[in-house]
């Protein structure tokens, strides 16, 4: 269990984080969503120990996170970086060793990962000679080479081609299935919705919404959508606040059973359901609230 507790951080006069807390249980994939400059990267950097918080703490399995445990984490920073003049295989293995693996194990793991990423033939090439997309794959290999216990990934999907997105998504799911807490940020909300067990929304350095995807959706204002094959306009007849969306009626704050009676007496009801908001809608709602 990784817990980020009440982080505060200022850069000069700017408040970057104002009491940020979130947590990831073993096997849980947490999506971290927020506008640019909301505080995602700062939170992740503090969690990875590359930035010091003004206050607050990071707790791992019930104890403050130490250097040795953090070394077993996998991290992908928002700004990618690799040694351009180092061979691909050597570089991935080097990071494995830095994370505490033996030389042989790091080499083996690097070879396996690059094989999975379809880069086996490029192992002896300098990173600077790879295409940008392949460099991204190497970056992914660097964050996964030591079989990390926890994954903290800042925008892991940005700049990836569809195949690499699948590889990355599978990798996240695999790590989670093996019991690792996974936290990742993304602006691609469809990916968040597909991959995440829970979502944390941050805005201006504060957590403005969090919970499982279902919880967040349930919390949103419900809209009843009705499609009726009727000649007359039912706007005045239906209960609650009624708006039109094309031929559909959208009802807020009205008794749904009453609405069904009105609709079915007017004609054939082809659709009668509550709209499920997408994460994108929840996000927009949350940040503009």
């Amino acid at each position: 269990m990784l817990e980020i507790k009440d982080l505060h951080k200022r850069f000069g006069d700017t408040v970057a984080l104002d009491g940020v807390s979130l947590s990831a249980a073993p096997g849980e994939v947490v999506g971290f969503v927020g506008a640019n400059g909301a505080g995602k990267t700062t939170t992740m950097r503090i969690a990875m120990g590359v930035l010091a918080a003004d206050s607050g703490e990071i707790v791992y399995n019930g104890a403050p996170l130490g250097v040795e445990q953090r070394r077993r984490f996998g991290y992908m920073p928002s700004e990618r970086g690799l040694y351009p003049k180092m061979k691909t295989g050597e570089q991935v293995a080097y990071f494995g060793e830095l994370h505490g693996m033996s030389k042989a194990a790091a080499k083996r793991s690097a070879a396996e990962l690059l094989e999975q990423l379809d880069l086996s033939e490029r192992m002896g090439d300098f990173v600077q000679d790879l295409s940008l997309g392949n460099q991204q794959r190497v970056q992914l290999a660097v964050s996964l080479v030591h079989d990390p216990e926890v994954l903290i990934l800042d925008e892991p999907f940005s700049g990836l081609d569809p195949i690499a997105v699948d590889v990355m998504g599978t990798a996240l799911k695999d790590r989670a299935a093996a019991g690792a807490p996974v936290i990742f940020s993304s602006h691609q909300l469809d990916l968040i919705e597909r991959l995440c067990d829970s979502v944390v929304i941050i805005g201006n350095g504060r957590i403005i919404a969090s919970g499982t995807v279902e919880e967040l959706k349930a919390k949103e204002v419900k809209q009843l959508r009705i499609s009726v094959e009727a000649a007359e306009d039912l706007t005045a007849l239906l209960p609650g606040t009624v708006t039109r969306d094309g031929d559909d009626y959208l009802i807020e704050d009205g008794d749904d059973q009453e609405a069904l009676r009105v609709a079915s007496s007017a004609g054939r009801v082809t659709r009668f359901a509550y709209d499920q908001p997408t994460i994108a809608e929840i996000f927009r709602e949350a940040v503009t609230r």
Binding site: F73, G81, L82, Y83, P84, L98, G100
Partner: peptide, 17 residues
């Protein structure tokens, strides 16, 4: 400067002082 400009230093500092 190479490590800094390529931002690799951020990954390095998660496992090194």
């Amino acid at each position: 400067v190479e490590e800094k400009s390529s931002r690799i230093v951020e990954i390095l500092l998660t496992s090194l002082k």
